[in-house]
Simulated scan of single mutants.
Amino acid sequence: MSVQERRARELAQRRNQIIAAARELAESEGWGAVTTRRLAERIEYSQPVLYKHFKDKVDIVRTVALEGFGELAQSMREARLATTSPPEALRALARTYVGFAEANPMLYEAMFITPIDLAFGQSDSPPTLVESFDELCRSVSCLANGRALETVAEVVWGSLHGLVVLDRGGRLRLSHRDERIELLVEQLLRSIDSQA
């Protein structure tokens, strides 16, 4: 291994350490606790070393969010591929999406709530955003029925996101979460029947 290859590997490992530390700290104490000083302490490097990898905290949150979109896409893909029919795929998508948000609250916040410069549907959207939206489209394709698939996907996504945010804010009865998901899926599937 050349010196350049070893240096590149070390830089990648350090970058991954920073991201892992940011995620751990955010999940345990919230994004407000994630500072370059605290991250530097956790990974045992100086703050200037962090700035060699990330320009600021927003850049770190953005990188965490991008990683999260890849993880969400993978989770949605696995859920879809484990089903045998389009309605089951839709149901699996809804449960997977809500479950992902519940299991990773601060990651979800970085991905969908924290103001960062990540936009879907743009020509320069990062690949993990494209991948996660494409996976969402695959899971809701049975609902399109002549309508624009991307718009249908956005409506389903907005509905699921609304349920997640209301749950997180303690605005909905936790004991009825599964019932709400099932009701949403049933209503969406009825829209197919009503158009047939």
Rank of each mutant, 00 (worst) to 15 (best):
N145R: 15
G146C: 11
R147H: 10
R147A: 13
R147K: 11
A148G: 00
A148L: 08
A148S: 03
A148V: 09
A148R: 10
L149H: 07
L149Y: 09
E150P: 01
E150Q: 11
E150A: 13
T151W: 12
T151C: 04
V152A: 06
V152F: 05
A153Y: 02
A153M: 05
E154F: 10
E154Q: 13
E154P: 01
V155K: 04
V155Q: 05
V155T: 07
V155H: 08
V156D: 01
V156P: 03
W157R: 15
W157C: 04
W157A: 05
W157V: 02
G158C: 09
G158Q: 08
G158H: 06
G158K: 04
S159K: 06
S159L: 14
S159D: 05
L160P: 02
L160W: 03
H161S: 12
H161T: 11
G162T: 09
G162V: 07
L163G: 02
V165I: 15
V165T: 14
L166C: 10
L166Y: 13
L166F: 14
D167A: 14
D167E: 14
D167H: 14
R168F: 15
G169Q: 15
G169N: 15
G170A: 15
G170Y: 15
G170T: 13
R171N: 08
R171Y: 15
R171I: 10
L172E: 06
L172N: 04
L174F: 05
L174T: 00
L174Y: 03
L174R: 10
L174I: 00
S175T: 03
S175M: 00
S175L: 04
H176F: 12
R177S: 07
R177I: 07
D178I: 02
D178Q: 09
D178A: 09
E179V: 07
E179Y: 07
R180K: 09
R180G: 00
R180E: 05
R180D: 03
E182R: 05
E182C: 01
L184W: 03
L184P: 01
L184A: 11
V185W: 04
V185C: 07
Q187C: 12
L188T: 01
L188V: 04
L188M: 15
L189V: 01
R190E: 14
R190H: 13
I192N: 04
I192R: 11
